[in-house]
Design a protein around this nucleic acid. Structure first.
Lengths: 229, 229
DNA sequence: TTCTTGTCACCTAGGTGTTAATAT
DNA sequence: ATATTAACACCTAGGTGACAAGAA
């Protein structure tokens, strides 16, 4: 079984409609996809990997609220048509693969080397996504079968885990200002953009104390809640 | 078979009498111990590890040249007596261990996570060394034998490689000023202490063009060559 | 009008030798 | 006199969103 780390944070993002930046060079996800794993055979070898599947066949666009000089986005999504042709469905192997079950289970497994790109010709092995489309990350565990005819057992040696709270829209620039503010508030690398107390975050952000960011986020973008569901 | 990377740099240090800093928190080696490996079974599992053995049973000290106000060291070593009691002979496993032969061979194997400490009570798993003692790094390859009674074959599943040019004296502060200058000139993290042209190093430092540093090093410490052999 | 790109200041994270103070 | 320690400025390396300019 698999447990998603930082679930509280994922939930908070998901509530606003998570967005992930894609760039030509590749951009990490935030939050990072991290899991705790239970119930492996400690002595057996496993490969861990992720892929991303489209949530629907829609292309999104920002609604045409009168935005003064393009400074504000409306933070609500409209369907803009059918999805663009699917991108090459790449897969990201966790760089420690293959490794023993004991190794995977003894600490949190973090996919912090995974990067998202919108460059169809990327040759860095990054995950290629279409901007303005929604995606569902998937996590796969593959048991490395020592038997000679292991291909025959491919089905049973394979297990997939999906956490719906990790869904996101790929974007080249943030659309929902509250997403931006939550990223700034919770990602240590964005600390330079914080203008609130240097306290309270992420120090006090522990499982159980969930909606810490709400008040702060509310004070920024006056536009109401997103319509991503 | 195993090939030492950056051999030219190691030779240059060894010629002056290599010194490695040890600290309580742990200090990396420079140069980093890196090797290219050939002739493994691509499909078999191997563990890679390093340890450090005393070169002799001597304790060293700086000679008592009249040094004005402790500003200069003499850069020559005297035997100060018998070695201190041996430290716990720790071992450093390359963090990618175990891995397949194919994985180890496809790129340079770097021990850049290895740290040296003089703290006998260290609990970070660092290599514990006695300051003012000389050490020989050793590199070991262990074949992970899939057989049930693999312990019986421990001898033949084990291979050790020693590069004498990687010998060094553990120190808490540099003793030979020419070693300091060569570290500053060749270690990117010490760039802040360079006062020469920002060119020429390490850009031009390629195997085949060896004594690039000699002129620069010569111009600093007037004291003659070391006596570490 | 909407979306994308490249550059930038500002961070995190951590590896350097220096230096002054302290320990032996 | 010699050896060790801890704080420090200055680097490498690379992850942030902001912003202005460009593209569609």
């Amino acid at each position: 079984s698999v447990q998603l780390e930082m679930k509280a944070l994922w939930d908070e993002f998901n509530q606003l409609g998570t967005e992930m930046i894609v760039t030509k060079a590749g951009r990490r996800m935030f939050p990072t996809f991290q899991v705790k794993i239970f119930g492996m055979d400690p002595m057996a070898d496993y490969m861990l990997l992720m892929d991303f599947v489209p949530v629907d066949d829609k292309r999104y666009r920002q609604s045409a609220f009168p935005s003064r000089r393009y400074a504000f986005h409306s933070s609500s999504w409209l369907v803009a048509g059918k999805a663009d042709p699917a991108t090459p469905g790449r897969v990201h192997y966790h760089p420690d693969s293959p490794a023993k079950g004991a190794q995977w289970m003894k600490q949190i497994v973090s996919f912090d080397k995974l990067k998202l790109t919108n460059n169809l010709l990327d040759d860095n092995g990054h995950i290629i996504l279409n901007s303005m489309h929604r995606y569902q990350p998937r996590f796969h565990v593959v048991y490395v079968d020592p038997r000679k005819d292991s291909e025959k057992y491919a089905e049973e040696n394979f297990k997939t885990f999906v956490f719906e709270e990790t869904r996101f829209t790929a974007v080249t620039a943030y659309q929902n200002h509250r997403i931006t503010q939550l990223k700034i508030a919770s990602n240590p690398f964005a600390k330079g953009f914080r203008d609130c107390d240097p306290e309270d975050w992420p120090r006090n952000h522990r499982p159980g104390a969930l909606p810490l960011m709400s008040a702060f986020a509310r004070s920024r973008n006056p536009v109401s809640s997103p319509a991503h569901q």
